[in-house]
Simulated assay, not measured.
Amino acid sequence: MDIDTFRIGGEHPVRRLGFGAMHLETDPAPAREASIAVARRAVELGVTLIDTAHLYGWGANEELLAEALHPYPDDLLIATKVGVAPPAPPLEARVDGRPELLRDQVEQGLRRLRVDRLDLLQLHRVDPDVPLADQLGALRELQVQGKIGHIGLSEVTAAELEQARRIVDVASVQNRYNILDREHEPVLEACSAAGIAFLPWRPVHPAVADPRGEIAAVATELGATAAQVSLAWLLHRAPVVLPIPGTNSLAHLAENVAAASVRLDEDQLRRLDEVAPPLS
């Protein structure tokens, strides 16, 4: 088995180091052209998993990716998310899992990404005011219709994941997780046991830039950056982990992608495992 790839939902083989498109600017030129260049360069560098969401610019991020990359390479998987309603004064943006909203945002995603099927569609947040069976049931219906390939979740607890798996086949979970923030360790363990892709968002904690810590020391030993060491630690953490670092910089993109080649030895892994504060 290739340790650098993972088969999402047992169907889509992707390189484990992906790309988060959230930071790509969608404003007119020259910012938009720069974002398109970054998206295209990510694919040129071998990225085969890109993460976006309806929330990112209320669809503008999806449209940008389509402009940059459509027609998509056969091996490219674009994952998107639904379930956050845009602001409608006097209401602010809010989590909204009503089936009618989920269906509408899926239809918008299909149109904006210029595809007939969303290969990986993730529920951006669980709406506490709507039964989970109704939220996932709406996505399952769309899956049966062929508009969704695989269903994922985002920012869920281990208990919510267990409940969801009784309703649908869960292909992925996207939770906040990094070397200094391991609140969702139980969720990662559940994903590892079930072979579910775990996509950590904010995979590099801002504090890793501290030059005094163990992460910086390991980076010096390897001739790497602290961010690369943090991403490499995630890739070593479990085979199901698929980090999705985001950037709007070509240089930063190249640095992130190069992290896939950073190899940590047992001593370095042990030291890095110990840098996070204990879970309360």
Score class of each variant (00 low, 15 high):
residue 14 V to E: 09
residue 82 V to T: 08
residue 223 G to L: 04
residue 13 P to N: 03
residue 119 D to M: 10
residue 71 P to F: 07
residue 157 T to F: 01
residue 267 D to S: 12
residue 116 D to H: 06
residue 234 L to F: 12
residue 16 R to I: 06
residue 276 A to I: 11
residue 12 H to L: 11
residue 79 A to Q: 09
residue 182 R to K: 12
residue 246 G to M: 02
residue 76 L to R: 06
residue 167 I to H: 04
residue 210 D to V: 05
residue 164 A to V: 02
residue 189 E to L: 07
residue 19 F to V: 05
residue 171 A to D: 00
residue 67 E to V: 05
residue 130 V to N: 02
residue 232 A to I: 05
residue 50 I to W: 14
residue 50 I to G: 07
residue 3 I to W: 07
residue 194 A to D: 12
residue 235 L to S: 02
residue 50 I to D: 06
residue 193 A to N: 02
residue 78 I to T: 09
residue 207 A to F: 00
residue 138 A to M: 08
residue 96 D to V: 08
residue 237 R to E: 00
residue 5 T to V: 02
residue 13 P to T: 00
residue 256 N to A: 06
residue 144 V to H: 13
residue 149 G to S: 08
residue 19 F to C: 04
residue 158 A to Q: 14
residue 259 A to T: 03
residue 86 P to C: 05
residue 178 N to H: 11
residue 234 L to S: 08
residue 86 P to R: 14
residue 61 N to K: 06
residue 125 R to S: 12
residue 167 I to K: 10
residue 226 A to P: 03
residue 215 I to E: 08
residue 108 Q to V: 05
residue 205 H to D: 09
residue 99 P to S: 05
residue 278 P to C: 04
residue 109 G to S: 15
residue 153 L to P: 05
residue 119 D to V: 00
residue 127 D to R: 05
residue 10 G to M: 03
residue 15 R to C: 05
residue 235 L to D: 01
residue 213 G to M: 10
residue 247 T to C: 07
residue 205 H to W: 13
residue 107 E to S: 13
residue 224 A to F: 11
residue 44 E to D: 14
residue 121 L to N: 13
residue 26 T to H: 00
residue 112 R to F: 01
residue 113 L to G: 00
residue 246 G to N: 04
residue 32 R to W: 04
residue 246 G to W: 02
residue 30 P to N: 08
residue 1 M to Y: 10
residue 92 E to D: 15
residue 141 E to K: 14
residue 139 L to S: 07
residue 78 I to H: 04
residue 201 W to H: 10
residue 156 V to G: 01
residue 71 P to Q: 12
residue 141 E to Y: 09
residue 125 R to M: 10
residue 229 V to H: 06
residue 21 A to V: 03
residue 66 A to L: 01
residue 159 A to H: 15
residue 262 V to Y: 14
residue 274 E to N: 11
residue 245 P to T: 07
residue 63 E to Y: 01
residue 8 I to S: 08
residue 149 G to M: 10
residue 223 G to Q: 06
residue 86 P to Y: 11
residue 14 V to A: 13
residue 176 R to D: 14
residue 100 E to R: 14
residue 127 D to M: 03
residue 15 R to F: 09
residue 11 E to F: 11
residue 214 E to K: 02
residue 229 V to Q: 00
residue 265 D to Q: 06
residue 150 H to P: 08
residue 252 H to A: 06
residue 109 G to R: 00
residue 108 Q to L: 09
residue 38 V to S: 11
residue 205 H to A: 12
residue 15 R to V: 09
residue 68 A to R: 05
residue 141 E to T: 11
residue 205 H to Y: 12
residue 202 R to Q: 15
residue 83 G to C: 06
residue 17 L to M: 04
residue 124 H to F: 02
